[in-house]
Amino acid sequence: MSPITPLSFLSGFALSIVIAALAYRRGSLSRSGAVGALIVGTLIFGLGGWVWGVALAVFFISSSALSHFKEREKAAVAEKFEKGHRRDIGQVFANGGLAALIAALSAIVPERVAPAELWFFLFIGVMATVTADTWATELGTLSKAAPRLITNGRVVEVGTSGGVSLLGTGVSLAGGLLIGLTVGLLAAVSGQMVWSAALPVALIGALSGTVGSLLDSLMGATVQQIYYCDTCQKETERKVHRCGTTTRRLRGLAWFNNDLVNLLSSLGGGLVTLPLACLLF
């Protein structure tokens, strides 16, 4: 891990300002989301080092780009989601907050209590999961084949929480692989690990990201709050549908929203890396 210095914090703060400002202007972040991105980015760059910071940037840039990809085709599905592609501070913390916490713990907790490798793999799993899940959401909704509910295989509408498709699962694997490959190669370039370790790290990213994404779908099908609009006769994550109708709760727990699903699935993806690391290293 890179040494923590005032310069690393200032560099992380400056880069985070630039990224957050560009994302806000492009419409990928709300004002609160830009503030959240500034906090998360500064902590990860400043405490985790530039390798971790680049991984965060890869997630954010790729996810923002995909959210604008074929927006017109995805517009009909967007009504099902609790929030749009303009991420607020809740979404930013749900996707990056745990990674920022891991970066902070890696700097605070003594090596004798928790080795650096623990935080390294947890970070990979968390970032791989949020990337995999975001990619699956943004591209999986474009699948020509109807998704199936992860719990029972029943065919459901595109965008239904808990629905999975071959395309969505495939791109989640690719998203996790990208994060694992990014961290593995950059860690090797910086001398933090040997080159031969880059491939296992990439594999850990791919597998943990996919598992975390599927866990997200499982929670979406079981415990996430889902509502029903009687006017449009459609399921939605929104308490008030886009048509203006106040929806009624259909299933799930009233307090278990999509942000919490994202946070817990990223934690699950992070924990998956630990047995994988023991197996591969």
Score class of each variant (00 low, 15 high):
Met1Gln: 10
Ser2Val: 10
Ser2Gln: 14
Ile4Thr: 11
Ser8Lys: 04
Leu15Tyr: 09
Ile17Thr: 04
Ile19Phe: 12
Ile19His: 01
Ala20Asn: 01
Ala23Gly: 11
Arg25Ala: 10
Ser30Val: 00
Val35Phe: 08
Leu47Asp: 01
Gly48His: 03
Gly48Phe: 04
Gly53Ala: 07
Val58Trp: 04
Val58Asn: 04
Phe59Pro: 03
Phe60Gly: 00
Ser62Ala: 12
His68Ile: 07
Phe69Met: 08
Phe69Tyr: 15
Glu71Ala: 15
Arg72Tyr: 06
Arg72Gln: 15
Ala76Ile: 09
Val77Glu: 08
Val77Lys: 07
Val77Ala: 10
Ala78Lys: 13
Glu79Asn: 10
Lys80Phe: 07
Glu82Tyr: 00
Arg87Glu: 01
Gly90Met: 04
Gly90Thr: 00
Val92Lys: 02
Ala100Leu: 13
Ser106Asn: 15
Ile108Thr: 06
Val109His: 08
Glu111Cys: 10
Arg112Tyr: 06
Val113Met: 09
Ala114Asn: 03
Ala114Cys: 08
Pro115Met: 04
Ala116Tyr: 11
Leu118Glu: 02
Leu118Met: 13
Leu118Arg: 05
Trp119Cys: 04
Phe120Ile: 05
Val126Ser: 13
Thr129Asn: 13
Val130Ile: 12
Ala132Pro: 02
Thr134Arg: 02
Ala136His: 02
Thr137Ile: 08
Thr137His: 02
Gly140Ser: 06
Ser143Asp: 14
Lys144His: 11
Pro147Trp: 04
Leu149Ser: 13
Asn152Val: 09
Glu157Gly: 12
Glu157Cys: 06
Val164Glu: 02
Ser165Arg: 05
Thr169Gln: 12
Thr169Val: 11
Gly170Ala: 13
Leu178Asn: 00
Leu181Pro: 03
Thr182Lys: 06
Val183Asp: 01
Gly191His: 14
Trp195Ala: 15
Trp195Arg: 09
Leu199Glu: 01
Ser208Asn: 07
Gly209Lys: 02
Thr210Ile: 04
Val211His: 01
Gly212Asp: 11
Ser213Glu: 00
Ser213Cys: 15
Leu218Asp: 04
Ala221Gln: 10
Ile226Val: 15
Cys229Lys: 00
Cys229Phe: 07
Cys232Phe: 05
Lys239Leu: 12
Val240Tyr: 07
His241Gln: 11
His241Pro: 02
Arg242Leu: 13
Cys243Val: 04
Thr245Asp: 11
Thr246Lys: 10
Arg248Ser: 13
Gly252Leu: 05
Phe256Leu: 06
Asn257Gly: 12
Leu267Phe: 13
Gly270Cys: 06
Val272Leu: 14
Thr273Cys: 15
Ala277Glu: 06
